[in-house]
Write a protein that binds this DNA or RNA. Sequence first.
DNA 1: CGCGATTTGTGCACGTCTTCACAAGCGCCT
DNA 2: AGGCGCTTGTGAAGACGTGCACAAATCGCG
Lengths: 256, 256
Amino acid sequence: MSQHRHPGAPGRAGAVPALPDLPEATVARLPEYLRALHNLADTGHETVSSEGLSAAAGVNSAKLRKDLSHLGSYGTRGVGYDVALLIEQIEYVLGLTQRRAVALVGVGNLGHALAGYDGFASRGFRIAALLDADPSRVGEEINGLVVRHVDDLPTVAAEESLAIGVIATPAAAAQQVADQLVAVGVTSILNFAPCVLSVPEGVDVRKVDLAIELQILSFHEHRKASLTALPATGGTALTALPGGFAATDTQEAIGT
Amino acid sequence: MSQHRHPGAPGRAGAVPALPDLPEATVARLPEYLRALHNLADTGHETVSSEGLSAAAGVNSAKLRKDLSHLGSYGTRGVGYDVALLIEQIEYVLGLTQRRAVALVGVGNLGHALAGYDGFASRGFRIAALLDADPSRVGEEINGLVVRHVDDLPTVAAEESLAIGVIATPAAAAQQVADQLVAVGVTSILNFAPCVLSVPEGVDVRKVDLAIELQILSFHEHRKASLTALPATGGTALTALPGGFAATDTQEAIGT
DNA sequence: CGCGATTTGTGCACGTCTTCACAAGCGCCT
DNA sequence: AGGCGCTTGTGAAGACGTGCACAAATCGCG
């Protein structure tokens, strides 16, 4: 605070811990803050209060302050946070000061979309290679990149320094691809295939399953439906839904 | 437990609470169990132990047992769980006994992929309508469905009973689309746009942001790099990375 | 120069989630 | 029929995450 250290190279002086170990929950929210901060910066804001930022990020303001406090004190009491400074700080912590190369394996339906998704490029990532196991797809050009065969991974890894791999293959192929990625030194994997991957210790895997999200929503739908079906009944009785459900959606009426 | 009630119509007798309120964390894992169970069923297993199922789902076995215990006792001590029965139970709880209609708004890059994603169909959902605000996209046929204009939502909602909407539009359009969805009675939204949606109480929103997942991985990469960069140094000293940092990501250390 | 308005940073209490460890229950084998 | 091995279901403890409420710090203004 007293004097702005350049956050890109924090602790030049030597006293600041390079990477405080943040709670996972905090890490998961930082990208959200970052996005909100970029929005603010684009609309000309120079500072923002925890209240303002938390609203933009959709979280509780106390939570936001605690999260930010884990990275150190980059706010000014009575004023708020310096938007630009905070952006730099968060980007540094998230390791986004350098543009990371990502290998995308599986150029099917989803892979295609990911290859063309500009949200990656705009947020610090660069798709360095597209790979697929299907020879008939090899050679295809997507968004300026030529699809190569997955067995070329070692070559690709030699050209680029890959640390992150994205798996967008069918579930049946995912484990093998993961093994190949790990073999060439990839230590972080984003898995879109609906299956569990087993990887050696030290390799991080995050999974995104689109259908799972829908199923979670479905549960809440089911729940809401069963509640609104017995508005007055209520209480502890909560006996199985009677026929009164009918009008809403007869057929889904659990029982049938 | 004593006697198997048919799970599709639980509580016909009247004593069983229709929907026990499950911890959110449990709900989020049920779809994973379900997927693992389907795999087991397909490979001919009739029963499975908590140990086996938890391994297939990638979780701790005690956690799995506690999760399942929340739905009631559907296991047999000394034997395990009846695969088919458990599938029915979980599908019932998740509200998947009926095929839910989903409206997908935004047929751009990502929307296209989602429209063609067979993981939805295979897990209890049916894309009932594709919508987009861009008139030039209206009329296009994707995967057997014709893209309609987003303003037709009321008509669509009248034809189908929509409860779930998926937003795959640019961030700028997302809030407006959400409002439109809510207006026609949608109470659950899966949002792929990188922004926070504000919706009335009673409407559930889940957000999936592909870039955020990468950023989280990036953090862990950064972290691993900074740790392996000072292998011997260690201890509490952890003083800020000296100039050597530049060299660090030189080649992702670790890798090679 | 001092005061009040404002906003951060955090101690504390609470709730949720995880994990261990073990008693209760079930089936099989003798 | 009885005992033994296996597996579930759960109590209790601990780790983790959340949110309130307030002291500490800063700025602007008179």
